[in-house]
Design a protein around this nucleic acid. Structure first.
Lengths: 347, 347
DNA sequence: GGCCGTGCTGAGAGCGCTCCCAGAGAAGGT
DNA sequence: ACCTTCTCTGGGAGCGCTCTCAGCACGGCC
């Protein structure tokens, strides 16, 4: 393949001419070569190679009405997306899966609440075939946008509106938050801990609520003084821990709703000279690479396959697109991914 | 704007018909309305609104040969991109600037060394007008790819090959690493510190080398036992600190090449009961949000405008694209962004 | 030998848009 | 009054591709 002089790439026409076939046949070969006799296929491929032909994407999209791209909408007004390795890992998984299916990833970062107009315009503009989004807030306008744009969408994390059965079903991928929480709390209970506290995440995120529910599933009648709220950040975890210790100096275990908060809690415990896990056992959630194994002591936590979740999201979307194209296949359904307890030193 | 029945969006033709003008005039209005009389403009806009017309991007690209999208190439084989908030913040800046200019961001994550073929194909396929990339490794094939694809590119971080003057100039944006290092070390010197050590980053990253150079600029003849190498990670910082303490228990200050390593170093100092900043003063680099202000004590560090760098990268690229389109305007030149010393408690 | 598949190939019509160019008026100069 | 100039509008070509449909050759069957 030779270098091209800019602005004058060879067209299918040129390939066809060189191969001595019609444009239609050349097109067939370029798109898989079904129904074309071997010798012609070879001639066309040779011409493609010699000319360094690369199909013009716009022309193809114009007629097929498919772009080969999907949008990933990050509806995070502020820095959460960046401080949380969670998203990045999901994106990595999404990217891997899309790449494997020759589909491009267009990143749509929402720049503030007024920016949804632009997102809507983009999603409706035929730039992408589908959308992936992360559900974080209760009032997320993205589902309405994708519905109006008429493109399929898949969510990361259970959207809060799924509680509302009247609403349209949107497939999503989420970890088994409730089950994971049960796992963690049961483990602490089996360890013989009597007063197991909980540091929870923000109430507008279903993952936090589900984890709280799992905690309650195991402990049934929970004393409210054993539960403190955080915001999924290190600092809020520290604050919540301090609060719990003040209210319940007798606690002997804490299930923390994510690793970031757990590391904050750990710091507070250390500062107060409370030994972990001897005096207080601690279990986190997420098994976040850069956190869980770096703390002192390393965190026992509930592990989930974050990258796998991303892959799964992409796969569900691709399936939906395929269904749209071929008119057959099964409607994608939401998937809950399994979690496991990762035992380290903190409990 | 009414909801569209899927698959049958209104075309320019329909808009023109409804407004009682020709397709050409409708097109003019949609593209800014220059040279069209007011009453007609209004009629067309009304029709656009009533029909909910959205231009077909593919058709437009097919004729203009512009896609309105640029690629961001993340050539990180592994997890560096994700563990380092640096990239995320730059992306945020890039996204803001691109959005402001109605340009889309296509994220290209390189999935391993064999994946560059795919990247090359994509960049050559007319999917994007230009590329932004981050320079991390010496043998980065991206510049060759973009050159061959004939699209402009801008780099984040000084590429190592810029040392080679024979090579083609690629505009880049980087912080004043060397100047920042000088700032930090001079500050420690002014504090009266006599034995200022350095924990450096990996040798294949120009930022690490430039920071080392800045350190040397101030201290001139540096005793090699005062310099240890890290890998820009927390753990490597801890290791390097331990190594330094062993070799030079008399050191009274450390300039660490980034905040992540500084936090690791800090941990080691704390564990050994060495007081910071009394016995050893510590200065980091980056002023990374989630790190520098969270350590104990909070880190004195060299701050840089990471998001601003991202914006700048995007702006340089947009300017290059504009130049390509109009055939005039200045060739974008590399920019070195200023840094400042952020004084907190560690020095 | 005639007829009907069957398997490939090519001609040609668009996909929706931009932009060149010609032409229609309006405005201004002589 | 006519010619020139300028402003605005519409006709129409064409961007590069896919896909339908017709046509052709070949083989098998009656």
């Amino acid at each position: 393949m030779t270098e091209q002089s800019p602005g004058s790439r060879p067209t299918l026409e040129a390939v066809a001419a060189r191969a001595g076939v019609s444009r239609a046949t050349a097109s067939r070969v370029v798109n898989g070569g079904d129904g074309v006799r071997k010798p012609l296929v070879d001639k066309v491929l040779k011409a493609v190679d010699e000319l360094g032909y690369i199909p013009n994407h716009a022309a193809r999209t114009l007629v097929t009405r498919r772009t080969g791209a999907v949008a990933v909408v990050i509806a995070e007004p502020e820095t959460r997306f960046f401080s949380d390795p969670f998203f990045s890992q999901q994106i990595r998984g999404i990217s891997k899966e899309l790449t494997a299916h020759d589909t491009q990833l267009v990143l749509l970062l929402v720049e503030g609440p007024g920016d949804f107009d632009r997102i809507a315009r983009y999603l409706s503009g035929g730039h992408v075939d589908g959308a992936l989004a992360f559900s974080l807030h209760t009032d997320d306008p993205v589902p309405a946008i994708t519905r109006r744009a008429g493109i399929p969408a898949v969510y990361g994390g259970r959207p809060s509106w799924t509680a509302d059965p009247g609403d349209q079903a949107v497939p999503y991928v989420d970890a088994d938050n409730r089950g994971g929480a049960r796992l963690a709390v049961q483990y602490l209970k089996d360890l013989g801990r009597q007063r197991i506290a909980h540091i929870g995440g923000p109430a507008d995120q279903t993952s936090a609520m589900d984890r709280l529910d799992g905690y309650r599933d195991v402990l049934l009648d929970v004393d409210p003084t054993l539960v403190a709220d955080g915001a999924f950040t290190v600092e809020s975890g520290a604050r919540a821990m301090a609060e719990l210790l003040e209210r319940r100096p007798d606690l002997d275990a804490v299930f923390v709703a994510n690793d970031l908060m757990a590391s904050g809690a750990l710091r507070v415990l250390r500062e107060r000279g409370i030994s972990v896990p001897e005096q207080v056992a601690l279990v986190g959630f997420d098994d976040m690479d850069s956190v869980a194994s770096e703390t002192d002591p390393p965190l026992t936590t509930v592990g989930q396959e974050i990258e796998g979740q991303g892959r799964l999201m992409a796969r569900l979307l691709l399936r939906a697109l395929d269904r749209e194209r071929t008119g057959s296949g099964d409607v994608p359904e939401s998937v809950i991914t399994p979690v496991t307890l990762v035992r380290r030193a903190s409990a």
